[in-house]
């Protein structure tokens, strides 16, 4: 049980609409262990992003329990939720979401500014993350000067720089061509193996699905299958 990073039991999520509540997630029971490279797969509107938001403490469930790194999401104050995100979680988005006015180095350094680290420690961590992602020659570039693949690598570096226990990646390859997608996926897999960081993807991209060790299929807010490939 200690190996479980995320434990979800009997979790439902409803959104109020004009015609009553819309149940986006229904009675989900799942758990994710440390070092997993898994994904929530399903068509648009199946509830993938909602699930990721709840795991990422950006939203909370309506019913049931969701424990992330031992913290019950529903019981976290906004400060505690922010603290959980800043220390233990990394996010990767479909649209990269880099801060355009800052350089590659500064974008990667930004999450560390929220953790009380010295300048030297930050420098070391940033350079290491950039090395992993092969971006050391781009440290002074601005996002606008980079290709889509490079931007997503910076986003991964930003998510990895604080060496979080869990990285949540929402459709990370949706805006990339095949070559770049595969390159990015290779790198994430490598980080997963070398650093033991857990990844949970939300995707419907077959290229990503092929890389996953565990695939959880979601249809209309319900888990329809949960398959783990043999190593």
């Amino acid at each position: 049980m200690e190996d479980k990073l995320v434990v979800i039991s009997k979790m439902s999520k409803a959104f109020p609409t004009g015609e009553g509540d819309f149940l986006a997630l229904k009675n989900i029971n799942l758990s994710f262990a440390k070092g997993e490279f898994s994904g929530i797969v399903g068509p648009s509107g199946s509830g993938k992003t909602t699930m990721l938001n709840i795991i990422g403490s950006l939203d909370s469930q309506t019913e049931g329990e969701v424990k992330v790194m031992g913290y019950e999401i529903k019981e976290l104050s906004s400060k505690q939720a922010a603290d959980l995100r800043s220390r233990h979680l990394g996010f990767i988005f479909q649209t990269y979401n880099l801060l355009p006015v800052y350089t590659v180095y500064e974008n990667v350094e930004f999450p560390l500014l929220l953790l009380s680290m010295s300048k030297e420690e930050r420098h070391k961590a940033v350079m290491q993350a950039l090395e992993w992602l092969g971006l050391t020659d781009k440290i002074k570039s601005r996002p606008a000067q980079l290709s889509g693949g490079q931007c997503q690598r910076v986003a991964i570096a930003r998510a990895m720089v604080k060496q979080p226990g869990l990285v949540l990646a929402d459709e990370p390859t949706a805006n990339l061509d095949t070559e770049n997608s595969l390159h990015i996926l290779d790198m994430m897999k490598k980080l997963n193996q070398e650093l033991g960081t857990s990844f949970i993807f939300s995707t419907h991209d077959q290229k990503v699905i092929d890389y996953l060790r565990r695939v959880i299929r979601l249809v209309d807010g319900e888990v329809v299958s949960d398959d783990t490939k043999a190593r």
Binding site: A82, N97, L99, R158
Partner: peptide, 16 residues
Amino acid sequence: YGEFGIRLAIGEEKKH
């Protein structure tokens, strides 16, 4: 808003 969103995701509080 994009910037604020990412900053919240990274772990900044609204207050901050």
